[in-house]
């Protein structure tokens, strides 16, 4: 857990410029378009991995830039990542117990 919380990198919010935010939004929009296009174009067996990768990238960009995790105290990141990892691991184990991956 938070062993080194106080190595405060409180960088007085050197937040990115609005232009940067817009750039990221454009990237997110492009990714969304790519995601949606898979509905219309058959890309075969890489469909699900591709979708998940794009999802993670979108997720990352919103969290890192819009939620400022990239710049803010590492403590925040730890809490969020802890919750994310715990939720992912625990619920994936539960889904495995339900044989979700094999049966769908």
């Amino acid at each position: 857990m938070s062993t080194d919380t106080a190595a405060v990198t409180h960088t007085e919010h050197e937040h990115p410029s609005d232009a940067k935010y817009v750039q990221i939004a454009i990237l997110l929009a492009a990714l969304t378009a790519a995601e949606v296009s898979t509905y219309f174009v058959d890309i075969g067996p890489i469909l699900i991995p591709a979708l998940l990768v794009m999802m993670v990238v979108k997720f990352f960009y919103v969290a890192a830039w819009f939620m400022h995790l990239k710049f803010d105290s590492i403590l925040f990141r730890r809490f969020f990542v802890a919750g994310l990892i715990l939720a992912t691991v625990v619920y994936c184990i539960a889904l495995t117990a339900f044989e979700f991956w094999s049966k769908g």
């Binding site: 403590l75 925040f76 809490f79 969020f80 802890a82 919750g83 994310l84 715990l86 939720a87 992912t88 625990v90 619920y91």
Partner: peptide, 14 residues
């Protein structure tokens, strides 16, 4: 708020 959001991950995960 961040602590709360960490907790919310488990809610939506469920």
């Amino acid at each position: 708020m961040w602590v709360f959001l960490g907790s919310e991950c488990l809610l939506f995960g469920g």
